[in-house]
């Protein structure tokens, strides 16, 4: 019998708690596969955030720390400074990274901390019940922007990758999406590159992954993917903003 698909050894057997159609599962898989393929799973120390992926410490099959809301980059800094030989990563959502934790992510990038951040942007607070995030699109209805987000009231959605790409210490910055098989393959490539950036000691690396939240957006999983393509990608353009080989 031929094995056509095997769950990555980078993931534990604990069943995911994510909602049906949520793309966190895909992103977890990509990160786990990358750690295994790069041969660093046994050296990996991950930091889980507060938000939907708060339980990520149960899923990744490596040492994990659970951080306070937004503080994962500071926690990862502490870990990496103690164990520079290990591979350290944070896995954070948009409320965690782009709202309460902006200072920590900006300064980790600014110092050129040699860890990798996986930033999952689904334009909403999922865990707490669909409140507005800094990444929520204009007009998007959430439980704290019931009439739709307006520029006058809440400003424009924040583009973290573009912002972080202006920082010298951020050596790899790319925005990807997991809405199609082709984009998932591109996402995997970017995640791998972001870990290579760390392993080669180049500096801070981040991959922003556009993700869906069918439950809080109020769509079926398929429709949610469509909403991401029609609304998020135009505002959050996919692509590489910085690659460490540019610095050579």
């Amino acid at each position: 019998m031929t094995m056509v698909y095997e769950k990555s050894k980078g993931l534990t057997d604990v069943p995911f708690h994510y909602c049906p159609g949520c793309t966190h599962g895909v992103i977890h898989k990509l990160v786990a596969e990358t750690l295994v393929e790069l041969g660093v799973l046994e050296d990996a120390i991950g930091v889980a955030p507060v938000g939907c992926s708060v339980l990520a410490y149960k899923y990744f099959n490596c040492d994990m720390q659970e951080a306070a809301h937004g503080r994962a980059p500071a926690v990862a800094t502490g870990i990496k400074r103690v164990h520079p030989e290990n591979v350290v990563f944070t896995y954070q959502g948009d409320g965690d990274l782009a709202s309460i934790g902006t200072a920590e992510i900006v300064h980790a990038a600014h110092r050129g901390e040699k860890f990798t951040t996986i930033f999952v942007n689904n334009a909403i607070y999922g865990m707490t019940g669909g409140q507005m995030a800094p990444t929520t699109l204009i007009g998007q209805k959430t439980t704290t922007s019931p009439l739709g987000r307006t520029v006058e009231h809440s400003g424009m959605p924040i583009r973290m990758s573009e912002m972080l790409a202006t920082i010298d210490g951020a050596k790899f910055v790319e925005r990807v999406s997991v809405d199609t098989p082709a984009n998932i393959r591109k996402a995997k490539k970017a995640i791998k590159r972001a870990f290579e950036c760390q392993i080669q000691g180049k500096g801070f690396a981040i991959v922003e992954v556009l993700s869906t939240c069918p439950t809080n957006w109020g769509y079926t999983p398929v429709k949610a993917l469509g909403w991401l393509q029609e609304n998020m990608i135009p505002y959050y353009p996919l692509g590489n903003f910085r690659d460490f080989e540019e610095d050579k």
Partner: peptide
């Protein structure tokens, strides 16, 4: 929180 990370890493 850096202290948390470093302490959690055994230092």
């Amino acid at each position: 929180n850096m202290v948390y990370g470093a302490g959690g890493a055994g230092a």
